[in-house]
């Protein structure tokens, strides 16, 4: 592996070229049209207008309302009001978009389908993973409103949202004219007295924190711990023989405190290696709690830490650092593939 050289503080894309998330309301003097404009990450020097759909986002921002549109001819309702002509009767008087016949939608609806939970996210959204996004049917609407889904109970897991799950629309406290100004939570997580409330803000709900606690220490876990530590030490010791595994952890530096019900140890990622240290790690970047040490043996045999976190068998203190866990999960396959190739030779 070639040595990686870098100039600290220098970036190929300078920070000043990456726009902050911003929005503004512009009034055009010619026809006094009110328009929402937002910064657009794809074209860093541009403001992108919501154009004719501005009334939808202005209603969200200012009035905490979700607007739909009813075709004046065939009476069909769509939400969001996404096109300029009626998709059913092809009436093209543009009244769907101008929202002259815009209607306020109810703020309780149901999920059109089971929403996917993104665990491995793209660059822009990695720090939010795992997150859910689905579609909700409101009132008479034939179309589904794309929407982020959240649970007040902590970690978003399969089963919380399903096709047909009744949901409540909740609004962000700070609304900037984006489709993330509103989201859905399961109706049964909303206190009964708030279920009919329109314009419900996120601050009105109680959100469970996702802090990781210390593992429960047992004699059985203590007995397993030495075997787990030995397996992990042997496993990460194979990284120097695996170019793929070295690539997996290239340019990545982390001090990870691993806590189990049988004892604790540290994993120090640096210079394309992982060093195992016993006991406490001072000022760790990441804490990984795996109550049952045998799960770590499973990890060295190809089981996924990500999946373990998803089913509650493990936890991390910083969900925004799931990328590190993904890197740890890549190691087994990389080491195995390089070993298989060496075996063929």
């Amino acid at each position: 592996m070639e040595k990686v050289m870098r100039r600290p503080g220098d970036y190929v894309i300078p920070h000043e070229a990456i726009p902050e998330v911003m929005s503004r309301i512009t009034v055009f003097p010619e026809d006094k049209f009110v328009c929402v404009e937002r910064t657009e990450p794809m074209f860093t020097t541009y403001w992108a207008s919501a154009g004719e759909l501005s009334p939808f986002f202005l209603a969200v921002m200012k009035e905490k309302k979700i607007l739909g549109a009813r075709c004046p001819k065939c009476k069909m309702v769509i939400c969001p009001p996404y096109m300029t002509r009626c998709p059913v009767c092809q009436n093209d008087d543009s009244s769907l978009v101008s929202l002259e016949t815009g209607i306020e939608m109810p703020q309780v609806g149901y999920m059109l389908g089971t929403p996917p939970i993104t665990v491995f996210a793209n660059a822009r959204f990695a720090r939010y993973a795992p997150f859910g996004r689905g579609r909700v049917i409101l009132g008479e609407s034939q179309s589904a409103l794309p929407i982020q889904v959240f649970t007040t109970t902590g970690f978003l897991k399969p089963g919380i949202f399903k096709a047909g799950t009744k949901v409540k629309i909740v609004f962000r406290k700070v609304r900037m004219g984006f489709s993330t100004d509103y989201f859905a939570v399961p109706l049964d997580e909303v206190p009964e007295k708030l279920r009919d409330k329109k314009g419900l803000e996120e601050t009105a709900l109680k959100w469970k924190s996702m802090e990781v606690g210390d593992p429960q220490v047992t004699d059985a876990f203590k007995k397993q711990f030495p075997k787990a530590l030995q397996a992990v030490t042997r496993f990460v010791g194979a990284i120097p023989k695996s170019p793929r595994a070295q690539r997996d952890v290239a340019n990545w530096t982390r001090k990870i405190q691993v806590k189990t019900g049988g004892g604790k140890f540290g994993l120090l990622l640096d210079k394309q290696r992982i060093k195992v240290v016993r006991g406490k790690v001072p000022r760790p970047d990441l804490v990984l709690v795996v109550e049952d040490p045998t799960h770590l043996i499973g990890w060295t045999n190809g089981d996924s830490l990500v999946n373990l976190i998803r089913i509650g068998g493990a936890g991390i203190n910083n969900l925004q650092d799931m990328e590190t866990v993904f890197k740890l999960d890549r190691l087994h396959r990389s080491i195995r593939r390089d070993a298989e190739e060496r075996g063929k030779k």
């Binding site: 657009e40 992108a48 919501a50 759909l53 986002f57 969001p80 996404y82 059109l112 389908g113 089971t114 929403p115 996917p116 993104t118 491995f120 996210a121 793209n122 822009r124 959204f125 939010y128 997150f131 996004r133 689905g134 579609r135 409103l145 794309p146 929407i147 982020q148 399903k162 096709a163 984006f178 489709s179 993330t180």
Partner: peptide, 26 residues
């Protein structure tokens, strides 16, 4: 993806195809 209603929510090829798959499994 739709820049107004979907892109900011984290829509990708993977999660959108997953919607198709999960709605089939529904």
């Amino acid at each position: 993806w739709d820049p107004l209603f979907e892109r900011d929510q984290g829509a990708t090829a993977a999660d959108s195809y997953a919607e198709v798959i999960l709605s089939y499994m529904d």
